[in-house]
Amino acid sequence: MAERDLDASLLRYTGTGVVGQVEYAVRSDRRWLTLRLGGAIGTLRSTLTQVDGLPQQRTRSTWVELEYMRRLNARHQRSRLYFGGFLAARATGIIHLYSVPANNGAYVFQRVWLGPLVTIDRPIGPKHSLTARLGVPVLAVIGRPYGTLHGTSIPLLIPHLPLKVSGLPTFLAGDFALSYSARFRGTSSVVIGHHLSVEHYRGSHGVRIGSQDISVAMRFGGTP
């Protein structure tokens, strides 16, 4: 993970974390609907971080995503090309910790995305497939408290959260996922995936977030 929240620090913070995600998909030969819930936590460091691990940023993210796609190409074609749209709500909280606890602060960046989505699904043999998905939000609603939340707790709901509608180019983001699935028993599959998400908000105090994860997942249920 990598973050640069200018409210929290001018510095880039990078590190590793853990991600978990649950996905529910309804898929026919022509349509593909997906609902996804996920979360990630990580501990990030900067060039100023000392041997005691401070200063550091502890980051937490949660997201809900809804995707709907229709197949573009003909049924007989081996590769399936889908196009559609997605609506995603994401919240990222950063707790910035210093060696002097009084200096600590918490920061929140919330956004709702709307944008097009394209997916290519390529069967490889009778049991395997490779899927690549790219989503690019073109409209976002940004929710960002002014400055720090003063402390190390991030409330679930932030009252009077100022919202700002943002579009290209003030908000640039891309979400790319590549996965390989192998059916191993009946309709169950193992899915090995890589996910890369990049976002850059150029607001008065901007945010850049880049994260990627490599995952191993189980998929239950049939695919056409």
């Binding site: 640069r4 001018l10 880039r12 990078t14 060039t47 990049v198 850049r208 880049g210 994260s211 990627q212």
Partner: peptide, 13 residues
């Protein structure tokens, strides 16, 4: 892209 996520948020000022 394993080593690129830090690059994606840009270098330090």
């Amino acid at each position: 892209v394993a080593a690129c996520s830090s690059f994606l948020v840009g270098p330090d000022a």
